[in-house]
């Protein structure tokens, strides 16, 4: 799905978390929003997911105005920073949550739901953990379960907030490839937020460098490396 961000701004009281920013995400792209904390990248991601609303501007999904769509109507698969797994539910129940929440007419029957949960557990290469609780998983496993839960709703796009932030360096490297594979297999338009320039450069097709609520540069990793547009970008990517 093609995502168009048209002059979106967001004010919190008197301070601007986002100055009007525009961005076009081509269908099927894997895009990184890269910047230090306070740069507005998470706010932008939450606006895409419908968890926050812009003070001005529009969001277009495949050319249709989606600015007023509720979070449920957006059908965005959202992976939260600390994964936000439902701690009182097993892994299977977590993954099935979105399917069970559907209105009766479109809800799959229980057998179909458990079939889909099993398929998603296979996809994240953790077929045997369905009966466990989130507290009994490692950080890397939790991240993959969160991904499976987001994919279960057959989302129109994937939005990930610092998906590797809570992991140690080795697991981080493995899961990067995991996300890349899932993206390539599903073809979902994917936007992820990170403060780690190496992660953004290695993983994304398109990197959006942000600072202080503004977009500093949009480009392919190699172009940003070769030709940083502003002193901020230069210092941030070499840091």
């Amino acid at each position: 799905m093609h995502i168009e961000i048209d002059e979106i701004s967001r004010l919190f009281g008197a301070t601007a978390a986002l100055h009007p920013v525009s961005l076009s995400v081509p269908s099927g792209a894997l895009v990184a929003l890269l910047g230090p904390s306070g740069s507005g990248k998470t706010t932008l991601l939450r606006i895409l997911g419908g968890l926050e609303f812009p003070s001005s501007g529009r969001v277009l999904f495949d050319g249709q105005d989606a600015t007023g769509l509720s979070v449920q109507e957006r059908r965005a698969g959202f992976v939260f920073q600390s994964y936000a797994l439902f701690r009182h539910m097993t892994v299977s129940e977590n993954i099935a949550y979105g399917l069970k929440a559907r209105p009766r007419a479109t809800r799959p029957n229980p057998a179909e739901i458990s079939r889909r949960v099993a398929r998603l557990l296979d996809l994240i290469q953790l077929p045997d953990i369905g009966a466990r609780y989130p507290a009994q998983l490692s950080g890397g496993q939790r991240q993959r379960v969160a991904l499976a839960r987001a994919l279960a709703i057959e989302p129109r796009m994937l939005l990930l907030d610092e998906p590797f932030g809570a992991l140690d360096a080795k697991v981080r490297k493995e899961l990067r490839q995991g996300l890349r594979d899932i993206h390539d297999n599903t073809g979902l338009t994917t936007v992820f937020v990170t403060h780690d320039q190496e992660e953004a450069m290695e993983l994304a097709d398109l990197v959006v460098v942000m600072s202080m609520g503004r977009i500093e540069q949009i480009g392919r990793p190699q172009d940003i490396r070769a030709r940083p547009a502003t002193p901020f970008v230069r210092s941030f990517i070499t840091a």
Binding site: V71, Q72, F78, F80, Q81, L85, F86, A101, R102
Partner: peptide
């Protein structure tokens, strides 16, 4: 965040309250 996660998965406000 758990409540927000439930919302993004399509649950209504009341369902989020009841199940999360």
């Amino acid at each position: 965040s758990e409540e927000e996660a439930a919302l993004t998965l399509g649950a209504s406000g009341w369902r989020v309250f009841r199940t999360v």
